[in-house]
Design a protein around this nucleic acid. Structure first.
Lengths: 248, 248
DNA sequence: TCCCTTGAAGTTGTCGTACAACCCTGGTCG
DNA sequence: CGACCAGGGTTGTACGACAACTTCAAGGGA
């Protein structure tokens, strides 16, 4: 079995091993519908022969697919494509975002959830939540004054807002999607033509406006403030990359 | 490691095997922060001894964690907690929704994305998109007239709306979360006290209103129609289960 | 003829062994 | 001090063996 797929390029990772490669190939076939739900996968022996690998590799690949929710195994019977591959987790591969449109599309998805989260947070907030937001915001202000882009603190602030909703699905989703998008704002800050530092100051002012609206319990204002914040970042990103199409 | 869990109640699934059990245990430790990013997991030999299993089981569990994005392995060095466990997929286990609040929380997340998707769909729609929506809606009307709850067609309609956005992340997310929530509306239909058939007719009318707004290119109307539709379903669910707390 | 039981063959689950390929660290030499 | 090497450790792959389970066909009994 030749590993012909591009390497993961993950830090510290030489190249995909046989198990990862087989996992990906089988997953592709399942997702592509070549193996519809309920159908039985080839037996381990058959997969061994087809792909020229040992049973160890086959079993590890099946274990990975099982963990991914794509297959279910029955001892003595076989491995079956899961009845509900709809239950497969929602995934965005940050390294897979190759085009500007893709990044903007993810931003758009994030935007609607963040906006709603801000509104819910305004209704649900406690004093402790607001204190936490303000603490992070102060730390951000200090970091920015020291020339630090404060990406991690930005992420943390959005995470606190998510937690403030009291809805764990909002918070975990925002953490998930924020982890993908927020680090990309470094290119907005590195934009020397328009100056990154004033933009950081704008981000900070926008964060403060969001926090103030949430503290006030004004859901509408919180939503508007969040939408302004994220829409501006998105538009800025769009403008920037339309001048430099290589950056995505 | 003794498998002491009760015999399989899942369809076709005996019970968790040692691999799945170990995978879950290690994943819990990683997610709980007991093993922070970059730290090295115990060696295979150590895990074998700690958990009393063979190396095969350990390796299969590590393969599963690797597929899940939680760990990275380096041959000759060890398995390490992934630098970015933020890249872990977003997951909701439908079987894990045990309480009313949990279901309502997922509904709330779905609502904001569906509302935004309707607005985007109104801006992006093509004639083919609208034709597809109408075709599904007609099929739904026929199914409902035949006494069929038309859950799959409901799901399909929402999937088409997601596709109409032209944003693959909206469509895959809506497919993901719709797969969790839409099947649960069967309890709304099975509610004999208030009559399920009139509710199905309401759903159908609401679908038609959404489609009409999208067809007209009126993003605001599409959003309002979608919000009405989903908010009503959520409120109905909340009322229903507050009378029967066992149903979640 | 139909239904139930039994046994054989097939399949997954686990364990153990062996060797390859790689990594890390400490010691030695230039 | 830096480069190189050897030894020990660790993951990757392959193989063999047996347990536990499933499936299906054949045979026997009602």
């Amino acid at each position: 079995m030749t590993a012909s797929s591009p390497p993961g390029s993950e830090t510290g990772r030489a190249q995909p091993n046989l198990t990862s490669t087989l996992t990906a190939r089988l997953a592709d076939e399942i997702v592509a519908g070549k193996l519809p739900p309920h159908t039985r996968l080839p037996t381990e022996r058959s997969l061994m022969e087809t792909y020229g690998v040992s049973r160890t590799v086959v079993r590890e690949a099946i274990a990975a697919l099982r963990a991914d929710g794509l297959v279910e195994t029955r001892q003595g019977s076989g491995a079956y494509v899961a009845a509900e591959i709809r239950n497969r987790p929602f995934r965005i591969d940050p390294k897979g975002l190759k085009s500007v449109k893709q990044v903007l599309d993810v931003m758009e998805l994030r935007l609607c959830v963040e906006v709603e989260a801000a509104g819910i947070a305004a209704r649900q907030r406690s004093k402790a939540d607001i204190a936490r937001m303000r603490k992070v915001s102060r730390a951000m202000a200090r970091a920015i004054a020291n020339g630090d882009p404060a990406v991690d603190l930005d992420f943390e602030l959005h995470t606190v807002i998510g937690t403030t909703t009291g809805n764990p699905y909002f918070s975990s989703f925002l953490e998930f999607i924020g982890g993908i998008i927020i680090p990309r704002r470094t290119i907005l800050i590195d934009d020397h033509e328009h100056g990154g530092t004033p933009y950081l100051a704008r981000i900070q002012a926008q964060h403060e406006a969001i926090i103030a609206a949430i503290a006030k319990g004004d859901a509408g204002a919180a939503r508007r403030a969040m939408r302004r914040h994220l829409a501006e970042g998105r538009d800025r990103y769009r403008r920037l990359v339309s001048k430099d199409p290589d950056e995505a």
